[in-house]
Nucleic acid binder design. Structure first.
Lengths: 345, 345
DNA sequence: CAACTCCCTTAAAGCGCTTTAAGTGCTGGT
DNA sequence: ACCAGCACTTAAAGCGCTTTAAGGGAGTTG
């Protein structure tokens, strides 16, 4: 398993220059133009030329210089991805984006969101790299800002719906997902079902609405109860404590996401309340955390792979097929029933 | 909070060309050379010129084209980072690498390791981007391959010691870290301390050795017990079950990393064994998982921030200050006592 | 006032590639 | 013989920037 082994036989110290197109051309006695054509698989060169060039390139361990070709072709074949490095769900998306992009001949450049690096900075970096399209995972910037950005490069918002703005969106139907959760709980016999929301973002809003509508749909208008939260474990714990102190514990709690759900489970268990024996808890995202053995969380899968594939496809349509009309792709989420839901006590 | 708002007043559709150096030059009636000098902060241009250029650049919303400047200067000012997208610890490192790199005027390009993307591919991508140095997080490739790679671009191995090979390493003293853990446990009164290892990698080897040596140091040679594991939660759970079935439960278990430790905790708790009441469990890395409220794992911090800073510093020394001799920077790990360790029953 | 400095500014030559118009040498038809 | 047509091949002009040697103007000096 000799990884990192490179084709280059040279390896002559940091000083050794890497072979250029010209070196390959010289070796076969052709022009750089021909070599370029062959290497890019453009039709034209004869079979004989093709073979010789390929051979020479391999022997020299030639790797085209992306920088130069990007400059010359005015195409970077780069997709910029803005990602929250702390989100397990984003990690999953990135993984699938990588494979999807590779399949269509694009590369990814990741720009991480951190405590000191906001969406603005992250996106600027992407633009400076000349990314041809921007795939933003759960952006929080206002629609107007995203629309403005879209004028510089096609923007694909993943996971977040953009009200009215004229740009591509790939997401799952969050309200539907929460609807499925509520349906599942009602099916188990629950009626006192609370929701710990995710704050003020668009995604949180959709999920909250999904909860409300589903409750109403099941004739549980009276039982609607929304606690304030966010996307962290801490918020879940906090909400859990609040619920415990209120003395009026619901029989099931629907959290904004898996992290929040885990916080809830933790708070309950610490208080000696069995999950799902005494309270059922449901998350959202089906991320790595939810699969941890000690939680085994019932949750909703957003189908990261399909979303990634669609996002890349959307970018490619814009870039290579000249689509200009915005498209919104809404995927159906699927309920994943695991171990934190059971009939009410 | 209008994120993504760009300085560009233009925003004229995808078709609008972004301003070039020449446009700025034209606007102030100077040559591109002068503008370039000003924008890069090179001494020479007069104060007056400086001001005018800066103003014009701002007005046009000019952003230099990295691609072009990289090509022209033969310097990309890019550090390539190979990262396992699924490791919470890597996520943390990346965050700090970003800030550290930014401070010294470099940018990061991340290449993610995934199920279908091995170290080889990841590194090739980095090289194609013309990264000037490669920061590899916990590489598993053989030392010889890394050494070969180092001939193309300075390689900095983070977290993993490289036997003999002549390249930079930034890591913490893993054996010492585990030594501290064992010391802590012995101090609490434990004697039956088992270790669930991390498999065959170099890091795992060091930690295992650290465990053995520490046990011997405390006169516990007879109690040395190493179970096979890896870096996953599943391995921890598996080891936990094995321990339970053996009927000879130790009073404390030292896991290879936090994920594995969490598996152990899960297995124990599921079997009704209290942690830390009946068994103490310790992890390693101090990653996000270990801080989850429901685990609150005692662990060892590898000081991600300092490692990141040192890694970037090492790269900069090589690139900007011409250092050629390899350097190994070994940081001291620090024990983080949280809630999964207590005196033995 | 010519000769020298200093300071600033710029012309021009690339960086390693892509791209397209313009070859070049064939074959074959007339 | 001549030209059309075909199948390749290549010269040359950039892409947007950096870099360096050379240029120009104002101030000093003898």
């Amino acid at each position: 398993m000799d990884e990192l082994e490179s084709a280059s036989p040279a390896g002559g110290g940091t000083g050794s220059v890497r072979p250029r197109l010209e070196d390959v051309a010289e070796r076969v006695g052709l022009s750089t133009a021909s070599v370029s054509l062959v290497l890019r698989g453009v039709p034209g060169p004869s079979e004989r030329t093709r073979q010789r060039v390929l051979k020479a390139a391999a022997e020299l361990g030639y790797r085209p210089d992306r920088t130069a070709s990007a400059l010359a072709s005015r195409r970077s074949r780069l997709l910029g991805v803005m990602v929250d490095v702390h989100s397990p769900f984003h990690a999953e998306l990135v993984e699938h984006l990588h494979t999807a992009a590779e399949e269509v001949g694009y590369d990814l450049v990741l720009s991480a969101l951190t405590r000191t690096r906001d969406e603005n900075t992250a996106v600027e970096t992407l633009l400076a790299f000349r990314c041809e399209a921007l795939i933003l995972l759960g952006p929080v910037a206002p629609a107007s800002a995203l629309a403005a950005l879209d004028r510089k490069a096609p923007v694909i918002s993943v996971g977040r719906r953009i009200a009215g703005a004229d740009l591509d969106v790939v997401r799952t139907a969050d309200d539907d997902g929460v609807g499925q959760i509520v349906g599942h709980l009602v099916g188990l016999g629950h009626r006192a079902i609370a929701h710990v929301d995710g704050g003020k973002g668009v995604i949180a809003t959709d999920r909250r609405r999904g909860y409300r509508e589903a409750m109403r749909h099941h004739g549980l208008d009276e039982r609607i109860s929304v606690l304030r939260g966010d996307n962290t474990e801490a918020a879940g714990e906090q909400a859990g404590r609040q619920l415990l102190e209120s003395g009026d514990l619901p029989t099931a709690v629907v959290a904004y996401n898996d992290q929040s759900a885990i916080g809830l489970v933790t708070a309950f268990r610490r208080a000696g309340i069995d999950v799902p024996g005494a309270v059922s808890v449901v998350g959202y995202d089906d991320d790595t955390l939810s699969r941890l053995g000690s939680f085994h969380l019932t949750t909703v899968s957003q189908n990261a792979e399909e979303q990634a594939r669609q996002a890349v496809a959307a970018a490619v349509e814009r870039l290579d097929r000249g689509r200009t009309a915005a498209r919104e792709i809404v995927l159906a989420p699927t309920l994943v029933v695991r171990g934190t839901t059971a009939p009410p006590r």
